[in-house]
Structures are given as structure tokens and as C-alpha cells.
Simulated scan of single mutants.
Amino acid sequence: MAPGALAKPQRRGLLARRLRIHIGGALIGGETLGVATLYKFGVAEPRKKAYADFYRNCDSMNDFEEMKKAGIFQSAK
């Protein structure tokens, strides 16, 4: 080969090599989306519902009055 000549391009097995790379990436990407979906519907949505239920039924003034009667606050009488 001459000093300035380019190397020949790969012709055999090019499709198989590219498919191995892309199939591996697709499997990893698919697993990631599955885990994200499971987290969203298994953890995040129930947590948001629990917070919404808590704040829908929350009476902060009643809680404050109970804590004041219990003597938790030193400045409130």
C-alpha cells in the first residue's frame, strides 16, 4: 500500500455488525422505557394521589390550634 493511500472500506459483514449495535441499543432503550413507565404508574402516580388526598382533607388551622394547646409553640398563646 502506498503511503498516502486510503484503506479499503469494509464490505463483508457490515450489515451484521451494524445490526448488532442497533439491536443492543434498542433493547437497552426499551428496558429503560419500561422501567420509567413502571416507576411512573407504580410510584409517582400513587404518591401524587396521596398528596392530593391529604391536602384536600387538611385543615391547617385546626392542626395549629391542636399544637398550640399541646404547648409546642413558645411564642403563640
Score class of each variant (00 low, 15 high):
Lys49Ala: 01
Tyr51Arg: 04
Gly25Gln: 06
Lys68Thr: 00
Arg47Cys: 15
Lys68Phe: 08
Arg56His: 09
Val43Tyr: 02
Leu38Met: 02
Thr37Phe: 07
Ala44Ile: 08
Ala26Asp: 05
Leu27Val: 09
Arg11Ala: 05
Lys69Ile: 00
Glu31Phe: 13
Ser60Pro: 07
Glu65Leu: 11
Ala7Glu: 08
Gly13Thr: 00
Arg18Thr: 14
Ala50Pro: 06
Ser60Asp: 10
Lys49Gln: 09
Glu31Cys: 13
Lys77Arg: 04
Glu65Asn: 08
Ala26Ile: 06
Arg20Ile: 15
Glu45Pro: 00
Arg12Lys: 10
Ala26Leu: 05
Ala7Val: 11
Asp59Gly: 01
Glu66Thr: 07
Leu38Cys: 03
Gly4Trp: 12
Ala7Trp: 01
Leu33Pro: 05
Leu14Arg: 01
Ala50Asp: 05
Lys48Glu: 12
Leu27Trp: 11
Gly71Met: 01
Arg17Gln: 06
Gly4Asp: 15
Arg12Cys: 13
Ala76Lys: 03
Gly25Asp: 06
Phe73Gln: 06
Glu45His: 02
Leu19Ser: 10
Lys48Leu: 15
Lys40Thr: 06
Leu6Asn: 14
His22Cys: 15
Tyr51Trp: 09
Lys68Val: 00
Lys48Phe: 11
Ile23Phe: 04
Ala26Glu: 01
Glu65Ser: 05
Val43Asn: 03
Thr37Cys: 07
Gln74Gly: 08
Phe64Gln: 08
Leu27Gln: 04
Asp59Tyr: 02
His22Glu: 15
Lys77His: 07
Leu6Glu: 10
Ala7Pro: 12
Leu27His: 13
Leu38Lys: 00
Pro46Arg: 02
Met1Gly: 15
Ala16Lys: 15
Ser60Ala: 12
Ala44Trp: 04
Gly25Ile: 02
Asp59Lys: 00
Cys58Ser: 13
Asn62Glu: 12
Leu6Gly: 08
Gly25Asn: 00
Gly42Cys: 00
Met1Glu: 14
Ala16Val: 04
Arg17Lys: 06
Gly25Pro: 03
Ile28Arg: 05
